[in-house]
Design a protein around this nucleic acid. Structure first.
Length: 105
DNA sequence: CCACTGATTGTTCCC
DNA sequence: GGGAACAATCAGTGG
């Protein structure tokens, strides 16, 4: 097998009830992924080139196109993802700061 | 120290 | 509103 990530759709039910990776209290939801931004733009383009296609096809072609793109093409998307990540960092910072003390609300 | 795994995010589709 | 294929990503925990 080339590469089968058995680590997918984990949200199904990570650990039964062990409670190993306790979710963060404030959970600074990470920034979006490059794919998220890519989909935001391509979603329009893809649907335009494939009028009347179902989500199943859209999602698939979307992923294929994404990989079909060159690193330089993903640059703008990765750049956005990076920007979002920075936002996430800010949340993480506040989340960490809150951990110490500081009570705003 | 390194690896993995779990959690998250956004799109569209239909119920 | 949510679940599901599509991909990325990152932080925390374990050995």
């Amino acid at each position: 097998m080339p590469k089968e990530k058995a680590t997918r759709k984990t949200k199904a039910k990570a650990v039964s009830d062990g409670g190993k990776k306790k979710k963060d209290p404030n959970a600074p939801k990470r920034g979006l992924s490059a794919y998220m931004f890519f989909a935001n733009e391509q979603r329009d383009n893809v649907r335009e080139e494939n009028p009347g296609i179902s989500f199943g096809q859209v999602g698939k072609v979307l992923g294929e196109r994404w990989k079909a793109l060159n690193p330089k093409q993903r640059e703008p998307y990765e750049a956005k993802a990076k920007t979002d990540k920075q936002r996430y960092e800010d949340e993480k910072a506040s989340y960490n700061a809150n951990d110490e003390e500081e009570d705003e609300e």
